[in-house]
């Protein structure tokens, strides 16, 4: 098949990109220090690893509140509504079509930047896995206040184990995620989009020109 002409659309706003990379840094730091705390390796030293882990974890919790605010006030939450439409097609694409050089069956649009599979994964991530990590992490951190919080008799072992399982789930996600960003029409297309905000899509996808103009004007000053 012939590749169609590519055009740029502005897909990710500045805050969204900032949030993405901030969260990347947080998750990487938390994974490294978290696994150090379990005794997997020595990098910062146990005490420093704990301090970094606690600090970053709390910072993430606060930053996440801004993300939740952003998601709801901008209407971006709609991007995370799961859909069964075309999900089979997307799965078929990654399992088969991609090897045939087929184009992605659900091209990115400004108002639908996640394909059905992404919606499902990111919703699980943002609504389940990350909150579970944050809640268990916060409880773990506040262990000494449990009696004051009315949580007498809760099991630290259970909280810590859920937190550990979540960490493995996040690490697995990270591996697949890093790989998936190479599956754009070029290896670096998706990465570039998350840095610049601009994603190349096949011509014919509706592009909101005002966004483009706004972005240039704003930053040229």
């Amino acid at each position: 098949m012939t590749p169609s002409k590519m055009v740029n659309i502005y897909l990710y706003t500045r805050y969204e990109r900032f949030w993405h990379w901030l969260q990347t840094a947080f998750i990487l730091l938390l994974l490294v220090t978290g696994f150090e705390i379990t005794g997997l390796f020595t990098l910062f030293g146990f005490e420093t690893a704990v301090e970094i882990h606690n600090f970053v974890g709390l910072a993430w919790l606060i930053a996440f509140a801004f993300f939740v605010f952003w998601v709801f006030t901008t209407g971006e939450w709609k991007q995370y509504i799961p859909t069964s439409k075309k999900i089979v097609t997307v799965v078929r694409y990654y399992a088969y079509g991609i090897f045939r050089g087929e184009p992605h069956p659900v091209p990115k649009r400004r108002d639908a930047k996640h394909n059905p599979l992404q919606r499902l994964v990111y919703l699980t991530l943002a609504a389940v896995l990350l909150p579970v990590q944050m809640i268990t992490g916060f409880l773990y951190w506040g262990y000494n206040s449990w009696p004051a919080w009315g949580l007498d008799g809760w099991s630290l072992s259970l909280i810590a184990t859920i937190h550990l399982a979540g960490a493995f789930a996040l690490l697995s996600f990270l591996i697949v995620h890093v790989y998936m960003i190479t599956t754009g029409h070029t290896i670096t297309a998706h990465t570039r989009a998350m840095i610049t905000g601009w994603e190349e899509v096949a011509e014919g996808t509706p592009v909101e020109e005002w966004e483009k103009a706004h972005e240039r004007k704003y930053c040229d000053t």
Binding site: R14, R17, F18, W21, F55, T196
Partner: peptide
């Protein structure tokens, strides 16, 4: 694409990392 956005993001990231230790 504007370079100032990039600088802003990495600046903030560095600040966040540097702040921890």
């Amino acid at each position: 694409w504007p370079s100032c956005t990039r600088i802003l993001i990495f600046g903030l990231l560095l600040a966040a990392i540097a702040a921890s230790p």
